[in-house]
Amino acid sequence: MIVCHCRHITDRDIHSAIDWMRAADPATIITPGKVYRALGKAADCGGCMPLFLSTMRANDNTGVPMQLRGLRRGQQEGAEYEGRRQGHRVP
């Protein structure tokens, strides 16, 4: 099925690119931009983006690798907060 008419991208192209990226680097986070780059193309009008994303989500290899899940949560729980104090605003 053709997903993007502007760039002539099919669902098979998207699935092949995702499978190739996962095989090349099991720890990578797969994004639409990376899929476009793997195909040697770039988004044009963006009209295909909803279908492009749903095609990506249908692939089992797009999940976040286990070793990368929960990193943000883990950093906040175990580390001391280094941001501004709550009273940093001028009244």
Rank of each mutant, 00 (worst) to 15 (best):
W20Q: 11
N61D: 10
Q75T: 06
G47I: 10
L71Y: 06
A58P: 00
L39D: 03
T28H: 06
A42D: 12
Q86H: 11
D44E: 13
G63P: 01
G46V: 08
A24K: 15
R37I: 00
A24R: 13
G87C: 05
I18E: 02
I30C: 03
A43S: 13
L51I: 04
G87A: 04
L68R: 13
N59A: 07
Q76W: 07
M21E: 06
E77A: 13
R85G: 14
R57L: 01
G63S: 14
R69Y: 11
M56A: 01
L68N: 13
A24F: 09
N59I: 00
E77T: 12
I30L: 07
K34F: 09
L39A: 06
G63A: 15
L53D: 00
H15D: 08
N59E: 00
R69A: 15
R57M: 01
I30T: 01
A17S: 11
R85Q: 14
C48Y: 01
P50N: 04
G63N: 12
P26Y: 08
L71D: 09
W20P: 01
I29K: 04
Y81N: 10
R84F: 12
R84W: 11
M49E: 03
L53R: 04
G47E: 11
G74S: 13
G70S: 13
M66K: 12
A27E: 14
P65E: 05
M49I: 12
Q75N: 09
L71F: 07
E82C: 08
Q86N: 10
R37P: 00
E77V: 15
G74M: 12
K34I: 07
A38L: 08
D25H: 11
A27K: 14
I14W: 00
R72F: 10
E82L: 11
K41I: 00
G40A: 05
G83T: 09
M66P: 07
A38V: 06
V35T: 04
A58F: 05
S54E: 05
A38R: 15
T55S: 08
I18N: 00
R69G: 15
A24V: 09
W20E: 09
T62E: 02
P32D: 09
V64G: 06
A27P: 03
M66S: 12
M56G: 00
A23S: 15
K41G: 00
D19K: 12
S54P: 01
Q75H: 09
P50Q: 05
I14H: 00
A42Q: 14
L39H: 05
R57I: 00
D25L: 06
P50K: 02
G83P: 04
K41W: 00
I29F: 03
I14T: 03
H15N: 10
H15G: 04
C45N: 06
P32W: 03
A38F: 05
T62P: 01
G63E: 12
G40T: 05
T62W: 00
C45D: 12
Q76C: 05
G70Y: 08
G70C: 11
G33M: 03
Q75L: 15
R69L: 15
D25S: 15
G33V: 04
M49K: 02
A17C: 08
G46I: 06
G74I: 04
A17V: 02
H15A: 08
N61C: 05
C45A: 11
A17G: 00
L39N: 02
M49D: 04
D25T: 09
P50L: 03
L71P: 01
L71T: 07
D60A: 14
A17Q: 01
D44C: 12
S54D: 07
L53V: 08
R72Y: 13
P26F: 08
A27V: 13
